[in-house]
Design a protein around this nucleic acid. Structure first.
Lengths: 338, 338
DNA sequence: CCTCCTTGTGGAATCGATTACATGAGATTG
DNA sequence: CAATCTCATGTAATCGATTCCACAAGGAGG
């Protein structure tokens, strides 16, 4: 693999001149530039990004640590982040934490070691030590979807979706269909989305004159299995719920598994709704009512904020809103509410 | 961010000694080592991977260029690749080609510029120039799932799944259920999986005494939309097929969309089967019969082969087999055939 | 015609690590 | 006791770029 000095030798100039051509510095005579470009083409030379990064102290790479790649929501997010970053000439290095704090820490550490220019995180737990260290060290950092609080983290912008309105719409929808005893499969209390969705659900219920009793709050971990376990517990109750709201799509899948395994039907025996909409929800039996996040916009906003930070501009938190997409899993009534 | 010389200064030794401690070189006195380690801890020092890579000419990073992140098959593959790589202390940098040759080229170029140690590719088209260049330049490279042929590419190992047996089982299954006029939504002819699946399907049909007429081969591109378009064409035929086999899961999704949009039912009006099994297929209406690939094993085998290459050992191609998982989308009969 | 700019180019320091080679102290050996 | 070897450590070159500074040539202005 040819280096800059090979190009210089072949073009009969110094490495400094080659570098100037490569970074199109103005003061290079046209014929010299052409000679250099010809040498570059002849040799198939490509600048070594590693060397360049060492010298310039920037990698033009962003790190994205997500909680679970197998969750379509995060896959879509990752895709939109990559698209947005590519347009600004940045690469994205993804780390999958698999909802495990230790893995999350591993990825943050590796990314920092590789000196990525900025970090996009959707934290799994409350206070990963590496993340705190990174934030304190002044690494440009933005939280997406979920965030954490902590010393030194108050200046980290948060790009997220507010589900309150959509959850209120969902509760109204459930009430209108006659459901009164509704349960929630919550996400981990260590995550903001885990807590917020429960809180929003509870207050929406209260507004509709319903209460969320303790035995109808099940603790899940955003993965399918936990949805299944929690649902089993709900259905074993002497007085089981007539509607279940899963705080993410994977847990809804698990819930559906369990309901079906017991020979029960959705929505006749239990209604089901999920946070996070995905293409497959249209095709399940029955199609599942869900709260959709604007994933594309979320990813773009996160990248914009992060790159503002990276390039020394101030960045602000962004909150987008989710919307309810009603299908048949809570009872008859098709259509979507904006 | 502290550098090695800061550690050296604080420990009262030279940078060489610090480096030796960090790479646990044997000849360092125990008390010196402890002093250095203490300095490292005090400063929260982490070696700069960029500098290290420049010097050692290895990044301990692998590139993975996949055709489409939104396709659950590739997401699962990416996840298993990352898991396997992490165990061997390598990071994985993913590039999503989105089934676009230009994007694929972009990612291969970026990864090469960043001097990744090896490249795992599931090629989108026939002969991306950068990929050929990379292979010729001697970059360790392994094809996963799909592969391409070309000058200089004959020594690139291929880790893939052979679907012939499973496809034969699928055809037998369709025949047993009385389907005679079967169609296929093929993948791009530029991809091996695109061609192979059609070929295997055709020869399995022949073995069962059926022919695959030209109007029942639709050209798709492995994305949902194309599945929908091709299905529309099939259903507009004066004599439409009674079974459709989609060469991947996204096209099956598109097919299902179109079938449903016309008010037809699966499997009563048309049977449907797909290549690539995914968790959601259990929950669609009806559950979809699919051919499952051993994704985890595929990813692990690919990483093993690539790292063998990276570390100078010879590597071999690996072929695993797929298996048919029958559900209800082709007609009654539940269960799975190994 | 001398001085002062401007323009184009080269030399060399630099980024943060690794590592071959040099060095000095102490141990071993004949 | 001199010669040699071993061990622990330091000095400095190196990887491949970028960039500050120096410098030469030519043009402009007085």
């Amino acid at each position: 693999m040819p280096a800059i000095k090979d190009v210089a030798r072949r073009a009969g100039v110094s490495v400094a001149t080659v570098s100037r051509v490569l970074n199109d510095h103005p003061s290079v005579r046209v014929d010299t530039r052409e000679r250099v470009l010809a040498a570059v083409a002849d040799l198939g030379y490509r600048p070594n990004a590693v060397a360049r990064s060492l010298r310039t102290d920037q990698t033009r790479a962003l790190g994205l640590v997500i909680s679970d790649v197998l969750n379509p929501f995060f896959t879509e997010l990752a895709r939109s982040v990559e698209d947005a970053a590519r347009e600004l000439d940045y690469s994205v290095v993804i780390g999958n934490a698999d909802e495990r704090p230790d893995l999350q820490d591993h990825h943050v550490r590796t990314l920092m070691d590789r000196r990525i220019d900025g970090l996009l995180v959707s934290p799994t737990d409350g206070g990963s030590p590496m993340m705190l260290a990174a934030a304190r060290a002044g690494t440009p950092m933005v939280f997406v979807d979920r965030w954490i609080e902590g010393e030194g983290l108050d200046r980290v912008p948060v790009v997220r979706t507010d589900g309150q309105g959509a959850i209120r719409a969902l509760v109204a929808h459930l009430c209108a269909l006659g459901h009164r005893r509704v349960a929630i499969i919550a996400g981990p209390a260590a995550t903001t989305t885990g807590r917020e969705r429960v809180a929003a659900f509870r207050s929406a219920l209260r507004e509709s004159g319903l209460a969320l009793s303790a035995d109808l709050i099940g603790q899940g971990d955003f993965q399918a299995d936990s949805g299944r376990r929690v649902t089993a517990r709900f259905l074993d109750l002497p007085h089981p719920p007539d509607a279940i709201f899963a705080a993410d799509n994977l847990m809804a899948l698990g819930a559906m598994d369990e309901i079906r395994a017991r020979g029960l039907r959705v929505p006749d025996d239990v209604a089901l709704a999920a946070f996070d909409d995905i293409p497959w929800f249209v095709h399940t039996d029955p199609p599942i009512t869900a709260i959709a996040q604007p994933t594309g916009a979320l990813g773009r906003a996160a990248v914009t904020a992060l790159i503002d930070l990276v390039e020394g501009r101030p960045a602000e938190s962004v909150t987008l809103s989710a919307r309810l997409v009603t299908r048949r899993s809570c009872g008859e009534s098709e259509g979507s509410t904006p």
